[in-house]
């Protein structure tokens, strides 16, 4: 097993994240999961969108793709379908994934394409300095919600499950061993996996909402969640208003790129001896 640091492009460090930011914790957790599974570095491709979270890929020593805002999953879909043998991972944030990229998110889940998506949810747009996102809880503050956010937030795990993801889990930057375990399991699911990692943004969310610094924010995050296994034996009042962490959905199903390869094999059997598309095209009528 290689050292953890060997998975980083050390020449690109230090990173640009604020002191106390949770994104490094998630990035470290992903690397540890990859390390545990001993994945071939040359066969892992990590794709991101735009935002604080998406800067992670620049520090990682794989084929990495830092794309346009919200589009990581669409780019990743192209890579995975073109080369199904690659392990494709998407690192994205709550704004990137659930607002501008929401459509790509539900459709990637619907297809059950084998992509592991890590959503770093800090409940705010950090890169643009603290605007509310679709994951900002109602009543909380952002620079564009100066009187409190009126909008309801997504339950991203429920959304992923409803859209067809076959592995869905949630952890936080406080619950690091759990986060690593869940990412490891997600990477092993042959299909669309989503791990929501709730993280602290002390610079914008913490300050705007007077939650405090990194330590206070981590405690606030810890107090806002309950493990799904523990929740089963707790009285309802102890669970009410809290988010569940742990493995929330694991329902393997046939995977899109594998199905496509089967389709190719079937079509090619039908058209055995076919010399290529050039002159063999059936005429395309109206």
């Amino acid at each position: 097993m290689s050292s953890t640091l060997s998975y980083f492009r050390q020449e690109n460090l230090p990173h640009i994240w604020c002191p106390g930011c949770g994104h490094g914790t998630v990035t470290g957790s992903l690397i540890r999961a990859i390390q545990r599974l001993d994945l071939d570095k040359n066969k892992v491709c990590i794709v991101s969108g735009i935002g604080c979270s998406s800067r992670a890929v620049g520090y990682l020593d794989f084929d990495t793709l830092h794309t346009a805002h919200g589009r990581a999953l669409a780019f990743a879909t192209g890579i995975k379908l073109a080369r199904p043998e690659l392990k494709v991972i998407v690192m994205t944030g709550d704004g990137d994934c659930t607002a501008i990229g929401g459509n790509h998110f539900i459709h990637a889940a619907r297809r059950n394409i084998d992509i592991t998506t890590i959503v770093m949810n800090n409940n705010i747009y950090g890169m643009t300095s603290g605007q509310y996102s679709p994951m900002t809880p109602k009543g909380m503050y952002g620079t564009t919600a100066p009187y409190g956010n009126l909008e309801r937030s997504f339950d991203l795990c429920e959304l992923a499950k409803a859209a067809g993801a076959t592995y869905v889990a949630r952890a936080t930057s406080y619950h690091v061993p759990l986060l690593i375990d869940l990412i490891e399991a997600a990477l092993q699911n042959k299909g669309f996996s989503m791990v929501e990692a709730i993280v602290q943004c002390p610079t914008y969310f913490g300050r705007k909402n007077k939650v405090g610094g990194p330590v206070e924010m981590l405690n606030w995050i810890k107090d806002g969640v309950v493990n799904v296994k523990a929740a089963a034996s707790l009285p309802p009042e102890k669970v009410a208003g809290k988010k569940l962490i742990g493995e929330l959905h694991n329902a393997p199903a046939s995977e899109y790129t594998a199905d496509y390869d089967e389709l190719i094999a079937k079509v090619q059997r039908t058209y055995e001896g076919f010399q290529g598309g050039l002159y063999g095209c059936a005429s395309n009528s109206d």
């Binding site: 589009r71 879909t77 192209g78 995975k80 073109a82 079509v267």
Partner: peptide, 25 residues
Amino acid sequence: KVGGKFIQMEDEIGSIAACIGASLA
């Protein structure tokens, strides 16, 4: 028929993005 891939994406943004991904692959 020639071992290539076709995908109908959710919109045109996703379409060109997927093409860029495939080209990088």
